[in-house]
Design a protein around this nucleic acid. Sequence first.
RNA 1: GGCGGGGUAGCCAAGUGGUAAGGCAGGGCUCUGCAAAAGCUCUAUCACCGGUUCGAUUCCGGUCCUCGCCUCCA
Length: 470
Amino acid sequence: MALHIHNTLTRKVEQFEPHDTETRSVGMYCCGPTVHDFAHIGNFRTFVFADLVRRYLEFRGYQVNHVMNITDVEDKIIRRVREQATTIAEFTSKYSNAFFEDLQTLNCVEPHHIPKATDHIPEMIDLISRLMDRGIAYQAPDQSIYFSIEKYQGCGCQYGQLVNLNFDEMRQGDRVSDDEYEKESVADFALWKARVPEDGEVYWPSPWGEGRPGWHIECSAMSMKLLGTSFDLHLGGEDLAFPHHEDEIAQSEGAAVQEDGRPYVKYWLHGAHLVVEGKKMSKSLGNFFTLRDLTDQGYNGREIRQLMISAHYRETFNFTLDGLAGARTALNRIHECVTKLRDKAGDTSAEPAPQVLEQFTSAMDDNLNVSSAWAAVFDWVRDCNRRLVDGALDAAGAAAELAAWNRIDSVLGVGQTDEVAPEALVALMHERTDARAAKNFARADAIRDELAAQGWAIEDTANGPRLKRS
RNA sequence: GGCGGGGUAGCCAAGUGGUAAGGCAGGGCUCUGCAAAAGCUCUAUCACCGGUUCGAUUCCGGUCCUCGCCUCCA
């Protein structure tokens, strides 16, 4: 079997075949954060999902070129920059840095390219110019540049590739902001927003006067610059399908820069949102969490990551604190097993054991069915534990299972490294062994309590006692 | 109103036209000086009503409930 994924363009699960089949290189773009605040766990579900896709493609032997943008100019940012009398660079760098720290906490692999919108104004202007030249964009009386959906459709292009649109039935105009009333048609969207007093010092020169880019144009300009005018994968949260991604397609294909009728993007993947304790996150409900809120409660990034990738990306996920505690226990179980395999394997190395890898791969190939993939992992844990108890695993066998796990964890990214206990604690552990030999159980238990107080648990195994983080 | 997801054990969550994975929590047992870890073991008529079928949780129709999008949104 080969990797199959759900493509929003066709609304079907399709076999993944990148444009470039010879080098197996894949271009992948993921809409990144708008850096006006600390990102919340809902945002991170999407980024962890993108990380999972990237890691699985690499596991499958593809060479991925992963791009994630940073949106650092936008209404909210402009407002706060003005309120705090600062600059865009200063204001956004704080949240941008925090974002990358958080990604690291979640054990996400850093994208190869992280373009910022404000560094690509010329590319956006070029793209808008091309749309103007083709007659698809127009300047309104307010001096802003808009994209004409009517003209675009007149060129034989389709608007509404990602969602079924029926403009007559839509509740039009409800939320159209005041400054966009000069558009020719309500569905048109801004490519370039003319400078207004509220923008303060945030503006750039352009052939159409001072102003700033519309929201959608940055992703078209930056993705095509870094990945070419027609690339393989574009991902983002489900809310972005319309209008953001739809408009990206319109701008990019409206510019007619693709060769021989290729689409702007071959596969669109959208990750579903998460809710917390069954409800949409909101500060008033008290179920709104940034990543930092959770790590402050003592949960680590691996645990949060595990929970986020425990369910299918196309389903709304219910993130709960109970679930997080469960993720901790589940991960500990894997870690225990891996530790025992390491002990058994020693320095022996071996080729990965095929069985669990096959089960894992066939689950993931099926539209990234992580639930099923985890089931394969836990079945494997039970099987390894059983064989360890039965003495049915020798060093080579353990090494093979370990090698398989390392392959799997290159995708899941939840593995931990063992922490070595301080010497003083190891000495205490030995003292306890002596006490036990002398049947001085009171002293032995006292030592165990003392170790526990320092965050270490003692475990008596067939090979003697072992210390581990509790 | 339009479009698109969902409703499976206490909780989370896969899956299938032939009596339902996995994880967490809980009960019992084994091992242990006691623990821990591990193993064994127990816990579900798949929202409701019709239809198709030898047989449906799975297909079709309807009902109820729920979530998202419809130009801020991951």
